[in-house]
Design a protein around this nucleic acid. Sequence first.
DNA 1: ATTCATTATGTCTTAAAAGACACAATGTTG
DNA 2: CAACATTGTGTCTTTTAAGACATAATGAAT
Lengths: 114, 114
Amino acid sequence: MKVKCKIWFEENGGVAFADGRRMLLEAVERLGSLNAAAKELGMSYRAAWGKIKATEKALGIKLLEVTTGGKGGGGATLTSEAKELISKYKKYTGRITVLMEKEFKRIFENEKSQ
Amino acid sequence: MKVKCKIWFEENGGVAFADGRRMLLEAVERLGSLNAAAKELGMSYRAAWGKIKATEKALGIKLLEVTTGGKGGGGATLTSEAKELISKYKKYTGRITVLMEKEFKRIFENEKSQ
DNA sequence: ATTCATTATGTCTTAAAAGACACAATGTTG
DNA sequence: CAACATTGTGTCTTTTAAGACATAATGAAT
């Protein structure tokens, strides 16, 4: 038996941010474009854009700095708020993952501690 | 912003046990009947039974000791494996909830620790 | 043997989430 | 000022999960 966990952030009831959106934002940061990021993750641009918008609305912060026109047609980069969110999110989920594994061993696999 | 978490157990890929099923089993223990437990939780007997069966199959353990016939028509009680599962599950999720809250405060609300 | 409230199970319907399709808007570059 | 690859957005379709409906089976009590 294995323990699994899904961690997400909420603001007034709606899902705001979780692992899929973290990956999406990281791809945008790396590729400089939401369109390219969506392609890399195998999702439609429409879906990717919708998730970003949903998070922006839920948390009330701006995640992407976008431009249109120009040689590449435009692009998107992360705002400092987005970078901070990713950074804290990764720190948090990483820490929780470690703790969950540790507690799982303690409670489910170490008989003497029951 | 609030952090949320769903914890569940898996065995070879399938969802095995989570909070809804814990509540269902606790209601069975209290009421002595799966039918009554389903009613109390506002779900159909069919749905409740299906969840119990799915968990039993996934974890390979028997959760309910059932009888049919007699004055009350029959009933169900928890096996010792079910009781142990509930006990460890509650201990585990309780501990994780505390740790998550603590880490959340540390990373998202305590600026000096970044 | 009849009754009765339960367990047991197949199948159908509905609700919700995710994704696809189509098309408009942008604005820099050449 | 035309071209182009991007962003922006409404709507439709598909997929999937959850629940409802119907109906059989059980077996102690009477």
